[in-house]
Computed example of a mutant assay.
Amino acid sequence: MSVDGIGTERNGVGGADEPGWDVDPEDESGVAVVAAVGRQIKAWREAAGMRAGELGVAIGYGEDLVYKVEGGRRIPRPEFLDKVDEVCGAGGKIAAMKQDLAAVRYPKKVRDLAGVEARSVEIAAYVAHGLHGLLQTPGHARALFEARQPPYSQDEVERMVAARVARQAIFERAPAPALSFVQEESSLRRPIGGLLEWRRQLERLLEIGQFRNVTLQVMPTHREAHPGMDGDIDVLKFKDGTAVGRSHGAFNGRRVTDAKQLRILELRYGIIRAEALRPRETLALIEQVLGET
């Protein structure tokens, strides 16, 4: 019996059926890549004169998972490819497919968002509730996903956490984009994930706030109404001079690229920044909250 969860269970042939990631049938490009990789793995297995069950035993995975991967129904984890490469004597050809799968291992909507962020030279973001995804620690993100109702499977949770963390490679880009975040003070004071994770998150914010390309600000709870009360605001600008924006409280929440609409979002964000604490004051507040935990 196989288990498509985080835990492992022994199946009929004695292999551990660790999960890969489910394939989204509506993600046409992802389906095609996973199917192509599966066909290559099957071809190498057959060339090595092995049955699916034998390969499963040799690499420590279940026969059922091998069939799912070869049939393009599961996205194999990187370590799965490494083991198959070694057992089948592929000389790195199967392991090299990790690069192909890296682009489709996360949900399509997250890949699209990460792609837009990766092309941006400037990001401005106000978050009305919680912390922006680029600022979250893995434990903080995991606690949020695990709190959703109806609940995600643990496999879905881990996949989304990995996707959120992968987006944070933007902090390592060169040249570095200009990043501006405004968070509500309440986001600092909610102990998401428990005390230790709360402290870890506050420490991460202090670290990010020191980056020269990052402006981190907090909107104090005692401030009166401001233009972000309707919801989040995001504006991303690109090297060619174009931009895209979105706000839950404007234009029905859809993405906009029209210059007039973008100016409205930038106007609102500018006022929000003016109402928020200055960056140094923000870091001082975060240190204060950390000291109180």
Score class of each variant (00 low, 15 high):
residue 7 G to H: 12
residue 7 G to W: 14
residue 7 G to D: 11
residue 8 T to V: 14
residue 11 N to S: 09
residue 12 G to L: 09
residue 18 E to P: 06
residue 24 D to H: 08
residue 30 G to T: 01
residue 30 G to C: 03
residue 31 V to S: 07
residue 34 V to D: 10
residue 34 V to T: 02
residue 43 A to S: 13
residue 45 R to Y: 09
residue 47 A to T: 12
residue 52 A to I: 05
residue 57 V to A: 13
residue 58 A to G: 04
residue 68 K to E: 15
residue 71 G to Q: 14
residue 73 R to L: 13
residue 74 R to A: 15
residue 75 I to T: 10
residue 75 I to S: 08
residue 77 R to Q: 15
residue 79 E to K: 05
residue 87 V to Q: 08
residue 108 K to P: 06
residue 109 K to L: 14
residue 114 A to C: 01
residue 119 R to N: 10
residue 123 I to Y: 01
residue 128 A to W: 13
residue 137 T to N: 06
residue 141 A to K: 06
residue 144 L to I: 11
residue 152 Y to I: 01
residue 153 S to R: 12
residue 155 D to P: 03
residue 171 F to M: 00
residue 173 R to D: 08
residue 178 A to H: 11
residue 182 V to N: 04
residue 188 L to I: 03
residue 193 G to M: 02
residue 194 G to A: 03
residue 194 G to M: 02
residue 207 E to P: 07
residue 212 R to C: 12
residue 214 V to G: 05
residue 216 L to A: 03
residue 217 Q to E: 11
residue 221 T to S: 14
residue 225 A to M: 14
residue 239 K to M: 11
residue 239 K to G: 11
residue 246 R to P: 10
residue 258 D to C: 01
residue 260 K to A: 10
residue 260 K to S: 13
residue 265 L to D: 10
residue 272 I to Q: 05
residue 281 E to I: 00
residue 282 T to F: 00
residue 282 T to H: 07
residue 282 T to Y: 00
residue 282 T to I: 00
residue 289 V to H: 01
residue 290 L to Q: 02
residue 291 G to P: 12
residue 292 E to W: 02
